[in-house]
Simulated scan of single mutants.
Amino acid sequence: MDDDLRPWDVAAPLVRAAQRGDALAMDDLLKLITPYVTRLCASIAPADTADAVQESLLAVFRGLRGLRDPVAVYGWVRAVTVREAVRVARRTGAETPAEPEQIARLRDLLPAAGTDLTTEVRDLLARLPVQHRTVLVLRELEGLDERTMAELLDVPEGTVKSRLSRARSSFRKAWTR
């Protein structure tokens, strides 16, 4: 792959071909986005990552024809994946809420060599309620602002801000233990 190509530049032609019914292009597209989908699902639905990934990829497969702008595929995939991962996490109910209160941002806790979360961070995230885990992942790992998160999660911006504040507090307190 050319170093100057962005992920959506690679994905857009596959999207167009898949929308025209090219099964091989659909397969290639799903293979291309699977690591991204898996990373999001592992952070939001850690107890049921495989189910969340499967549900997300299935939703992408089913809804791809409705995507109007193939270059926007990663934003659309993120929205679909977050929705499905939250749904799976809520369905399973495998949450043990952490107690509230100070630490560095999640991005600062990533290992220097890559983008995978450390085992400790993954464990702490898994213990947060799904709403808190979701806003932390979207803000700290995906870099989304409150307005964008509110639109993505279909909640008021104030709700996102309060969830983010509580999530950070819970994460900090659990981290310092």
Rank of each mutant, 00 (worst) to 15 (best):
M1D: 14
D2N: 15
D2R: 07
D3M: 02
R6L: 14
R6C: 00
D9A: 07
A11Q: 07
A11M: 03
A11P: 00
A12T: 02
L14V: 11
R16K: 06
A17W: 00
A17H: 01
Q19L: 01
G21R: 04
A23S: 09
A23M: 06
L24C: 06
A25S: 07
A25D: 13
L29Y: 05
L30R: 00
I33M: 11
T34W: 04
R39G: 13
L40Q: 00
L40C: 11
L40I: 11
C41N: 00
C41G: 09
A42C: 13
A42Y: 02
A42I: 10
I44L: 02
A45P: 06
P46L: 05
A50I: 01
A50P: 01
D51K: 09
V53Q: 05
Q54N: 04
E55A: 08
E55P: 02
A59L: 11
F61L: 13
F61A: 09
L64M: 10
R65I: 01
G66A: 10
P70F: 14
V73W: 14
V73A: 13
W76E: 08
W76T: 03
V77M: 08
A79I: 14
A79V: 14
A79H: 03
V80A: 05
T81H: 01
E84L: 07
V86Q: 02
V88P: 04
A89N: 06
A89S: 12
R90K: 09
R91V: 12
T92I: 14
T92P: 06
T92Y: 15
G93M: 12
E101V: 15
I103S: 13
A104S: 06
R107I: 13
R107M: 08
R107P: 02
D108E: 13
D108T: 03
A113N: 08
A113V: 01
G114H: 02
T115N: 07
D116K: 00
T119Y: 09
E120G: 01
L124M: 08
L128Y: 04
V130D: 03
H132Y: 14
V135I: 13
R139T: 01
L141S: 06
L141C: 07
E142L: 14
E142G: 01
G143Y: 05
L144T: 11
L144P: 13
D145G: 10
E146D: 15
R147V: 13
T148R: 14
M149R: 00
M149W: 05
L152T: 08
L153E: 02
D154F: 09
D154W: 01
D154V: 09
V155R: 01
V155N: 09
V155S: 01
E157D: 04
G158S: 14
S162H: 08
L164C: 12
L164F: 05
S165E: 09
R166D: 10
A167H: 11
S169T: 07
S170A: 15
R172G: 15
T176S: 15
